[in-house]
Simulated assay, not measured.
Amino acid sequence: MTRAGSSVAHDRRREIQRRAAGMGIDDAYIDRLVETFYARVRAHPLLGPIFQDAIGDEWGPHLARMKTFWSSVALNSGTYSGKPVPAHKKLTQVQPWHFNIWLGLFRETLHDTAACPEAVEYFMERAERIAQSLQLAMFGLPGLPEAPVE
C-alpha cells in the first residue's frame, strides 16, 4: 500500500472508530457483548448443544477469537485473522433456520446491553450480512440445483 493509501486507510479506521465510540461501541463494550451473548447461546436449548459440540472446553479461546472478530467488524481494528467459512462448514448439525435464532438472540442481547438504538442497528446490519454470507457458503442459494458430480 502506498503512503497515501495507508493514510486514507488510517483516516477511515479512525472515522469508523470515532463513529462507533459515539454510539458507546469500544473494546470494553465488545467484551461485554460477546460474554453476554455467548452465555445466552450456551444456555439456549437448541443452539447450546451445537456450540458445545463444536467448542467443547475451549470457550476461553473461542470468546477471545469472537472479541477480535467483532472488534474487526465493528471498529475496523484489523485484529481478526481467522477463517470463519471453513470453521462453520464443518458444523453438520447447523440448519439454515438456526441463523434466525442466532440473529434473534444477538438482537436481544444488543437491546439489553447497547448504549443506544443506533448501536443495535450498527451491529445488526453487520451480523445479518455475516449470517447471510455464512448461510450462502454452507447451504448455497435456495432453489438452485446442485452441480452434477462427475
Score class of each variant (00 low, 15 high):
residue 68 T to Y: 06
residue 24 G to F: 05
residue 116 C to N: 13
residue 110 L to D: 00
residue 48 G to Q: 08
residue 100 N to L: 15
residue 36 T to M: 02
residue 128 E to C: 09
residue 39 A to S: 10
residue 137 A to K: 08
residue 22 G to F: 02
residue 50 I to E: 03
residue 106 F to W: 12
residue 43 A to P: 03
residue 3 R to I: 13
residue 60 G to T: 11
residue 109 T to G: 03
residue 117 P to G: 02
residue 72 S to N: 06
residue 58 E to I: 02
residue 15 E to H: 10
residue 117 P to V: 07
residue 112 D to S: 15
residue 106 F to P: 00
residue 108 E to G: 05
residue 53 D to L: 11
residue 137 A to Y: 06
residue 87 A to T: 09
residue 98 H to G: 07
residue 117 P to W: 06
residue 129 R to S: 15
residue 86 P to Y: 07
residue 72 S to P: 04
residue 78 G to R: 06
residue 61 P to E: 06
residue 52 Q to E: 15
residue 110 L to P: 00
residue 75 L to K: 02
residue 65 R to H: 09
residue 97 W to F: 12
residue 143 G to I: 07
residue 40 R to E: 07
residue 49 P to G: 09
residue 138 M to A: 12
residue 47 L to V: 01
residue 23 M to H: 03
residue 5 G to V: 07
residue 51 F to K: 06
residue 110 L to C: 01
residue 105 L to Y: 00
residue 100 N to Q: 15
residue 74 A to Y: 01
residue 86 P to L: 04
residue 136 L to Y: 14
residue 116 C to H: 10
residue 125 E to P: 00
residue 72 S to V: 00
residue 53 D to Q: 15
residue 63 L to G: 03
residue 60 G to W: 02
residue 128 E to G: 10
residue 115 A to Q: 04
residue 130 I to L: 12
residue 28 A to I: 01
residue 92 T to M: 11
residue 102 W to A: 08
residue 48 G to L: 07
residue 146 E to T: 14
residue 113 T to S: 12
residue 40 R to I: 04
residue 133 S to G: 10
residue 49 P to T: 01
residue 71 S to Q: 07
residue 28 A to T: 04
residue 18 R to M: 09
residue 70 W to T: 01
residue 84 P to E: 07
residue 116 C to R: 11
residue 76 N to D: 15
residue 111 H to G: 02
residue 45 P to R: 03
residue 20 A to H: 02
residue 14 R to M: 12
residue 35 E to S: 14
residue 5 G to Y: 04
residue 50 I to C: 06
residue 101 I to K: 01
residue 125 E to C: 10
residue 65 R to G: 13
residue 138 M to K: 08
residue 31 D to Y: 10
residue 58 E to P: 04
residue 2 T to H: 10
residue 111 H to L: 14
residue 132 Q to I: 12
residue 60 G to R: 12
residue 117 P to M: 03
residue 150 E to T: 07
residue 127 A to D: 02
residue 15 E to L: 14
residue 33 L to C: 02
residue 48 G to K: 06
residue 87 A to R: 09
residue 141 L to S: 14
residue 130 I to V: 14
residue 66 M to C: 07
residue 10 H to E: 15
residue 83 K to S: 14
residue 2 T to D: 15
residue 62 H to N: 07
residue 28 A to D: 15
residue 7 S to G: 12
residue 93 Q to C: 07
residue 23 M to I: 04
residue 130 I to H: 10
residue 48 G to T: 06
residue 98 H to S: 03
residue 92 T to A: 13
residue 22 G to H: 05
residue 83 K to G: 07
residue 127 A to W: 04
residue 76 N to T: 05
residue 14 R to E: 13
